[in-house]
């Protein structure tokens, strides 16, 4: 009786339209021949052609991929260590502070993270001469600090829901703690680790604020390029890029969902 109540379903439909309409419009206009995106000038793949000529954009994309890969891996490593410390260790000095520190970047405005890191790098440069040049590594540090909090949020929940008797069983069968971690705990929580890594990767690949603060000359990331272009208005080339981007992400997500659904015994 309650399940058949139509009102929430109608709102759900409207909400989904709200979420997808702009994306569909982008895809539609990316095939527009006209210079002005809002006027339909016939079907064309012109903007895709121009997009592929745009070496500056692809170079930035390559930089972003490298940064995203590095920072996601670092964030997953650090976030997993922090989650282990919070869920598997007996209470230690400063645990409460540690616990709130690990999630604090989640509620910290990106603009403050970016500004504070830049000020830190500048001061460090004055004091110890490092980093003399901002670029790849300073951006990586910024992204890692932010996305590590997201990794902790995912991995910590998984670890605290983890059936501890499984680890005890391994200890009981003669495995030392480090072996239990590598052969039992990490393999079982690997989906959560992967989800955390993927989220960290996307956060880094998508970030414009922290990157803008922590980057230096010659280390422009993809979102920085896109940001500077769309700030001045609509750019048909970005439509084409967005379409490719959305298509890639959709494919990856669908693939992951398919693998997950197939694995589940129905």
């Amino acid at each position: 009786m309650l399940k058949s109540n139509l009102f929430p379903k109608i709102i759900l439909g409207i909400g989904l339209c709200f979420l997808y309409l702009p994306i569909l419009i982008i895809i539609f206009y990316s095939f527009n021949a006209a210079n002005f995106t809002s006027i339909w000038g016939g079907f064309s793949t012109r903007w895709y052609y121009e997009l592929f000529q745009d070496t500056y954009l692809w170079q930035a994309a390559w930089t972003s991929l490298k940064i995203a890969f590095t920072s996601a891996t670092l964030a997953t490593f650090l976030g997993t260590l922090a989650s282990l410390a919070l869920t598997r260790f007996s209470p230690f000095k400063g645990q409460r502070l540690f616990s709130s520190l690990t999630i604090a970047p989640l509620v910290m405005p990106e603009i403050i993270i970016g500004l504070s890191l830049l000020l830190l790098f500048v001061s460090l440069n004055i004091c110890i001469g490092w980093p003399s040049k901002r670029g790849f590594w300073t951006i990586c540090i910024g992204h890692t600090t932010l996305s590590m909090a997201y990794v902790v949020a995912i991995v910590r929940v998984r670890l605290s829901h983890f059936d501890k008797t499984i680890e005890e069983a391994a200890l009981d069968l003669g495995a030392k703690p480090l072996r239990v971690l590598t052969f039992i705990t990490l393999p079982i929580i690997s989906p959560a680790l992967f989800a955390g890594w993927l989220l960290a990767f996307m956060l880094s690949f998508d970030d414009v604020v922290i990157s803008s603060f922590t980057s230096g000359a010659g280390s422009t990331t993809l979102p920085m390029v896109i940001f500077s272009r769309i700030r001045t208005g609509i750019s048909p080339e970005i439509n084409a890029f967005a379409t490719l981007f959305i298509a890639t992400i959709t494919l990856i997500i669908l693939l992951l969902a398919w693998v997950k659904l197939r694995k589940q015994p129905v």
């Binding site: 059936d163 005890e168 030392k176």
Partner: peptide, 20 residues
């Protein structure tokens, strides 16, 4: 003596079989 060095093995109530 830690559990991994004891000549003792346990059968858990939940069985604690390694799912992977």
């Amino acid at each position: 003596v830690p559990s991994y060095n004891r000549p003792v093995n346990m059968m858990f109530q939940s069985y604690a079989l390694f799912p992977h």
